[in-house]
Design a binder for these strands. Structure first.
Length: 232
DNA sequence: TCATTAAATTGTT
DNA sequence: AACAATTTAATGA
């Protein structure tokens, strides 16, 4: 275990291979899909996609970290979810013809995959595995948002941070993700909607509870179930 | 390979 | 919000 912690920037092809929705595609089909995707690097603080624009792509996080949020007219911004590497989002918008309803901001420099609408549609028409993935993902997110409702009002900060982290490590939404995630406490603060200092305190509590361990520039999950159930 | 430095992140007030 | 301590990455001898 000397340097398997060394970072290796994943390629688009690797991310596709590891994505659950590509499992029943032939090599030729996978190649077709890959040809319908382009990659773009988004600088920290910049938008991977914006509310109000026509929806032309389904988005995937190859590397980095993205925050999906909704900016209210009041000027306040509500974080809906964070998307770690290996995660795909925006399928809800692809299934409608309305303009996009949410923003996606790169919390740090991130590489984003953009799948064209015609490729997305082709997958729906030809791949049962892709449809199964979409159903699973939509259902999982629905549960996540329902949980977020109680989190917002009923739970203390430590528990909210726990739920936020648990959602990032959701094995259904983000399979390829391992036990460790590179995320700073500041980034986690943006996702959970609390100050970095409060995140620091919450992480100590969660580490004390045996849910995770805090590392420089990231955290490692020890007990995902315990993290999910924390405080409630 | 090692020492130095800058930048990022963390821990605390 | 500010500050000090710690860790990492980059640089060059």
């Amino acid at each position: 275990m000397p340097d398997n912690l060394a970072k290796k920037p994943p390629s688009l092809a690797e991310v596709l291979r590891d994505s659950r929705w590509t499992c029943d595609l032939s090599d030729a089909e996978l190649a077709r899909v890959e040809a319908g995707i382009f990659e773009r690097t988004i600088a920290a603080g910049h938008f991977a996609c914006r509310k109000g624009e026509p929806v032309e792509h389904w988005l995937g996080v190859i590397d980095g970290l993205v925050k999906v949020s909704s900016d209210l007219d009041s000027g306040k911004t509500a974080t809906l979810t964070g998307v770690p590497p290996g995660g795909w989002f925006g399928e809800g918008s692809m299934l409608k013809t309305d303009p996009r309803k949410y923003d996606a901001v790169a919390l740090r420099e991130s590489r984003i995959a953009y799948m064209r609408r015609e490729t997305f549609q082709w997958l729906i028409d030809h791949s049962i595995g892709f449809n199964r993935f979409l159903l699973l993902q939509l259902n999982e997110r629905l549960g996540q948002f329902i949980g977020l409702l109680e989190s917002e009002r009923l739970l203390d900060i430590d528990t909210r941070v726990a739920r936020c982290l648990a959602s990032l490590f959701n094995p259904v939404l983000y399979p390829g993700l391992g036990r460790r995630l590179a995320i700073s406490q500041a980034e986690l603060g943006y996702l959970a909607g609390v100050s970095r200092q409060r995140i620091n305190r919450a992480l100590k509590v969660l580490a004390e509870a045996g849910c995770l361990s805090v590392e420089y520039g990231g955290i490692s999950i020890h007990d995902l179930d315990r993290l999910r159930r924390f405080g409630g």
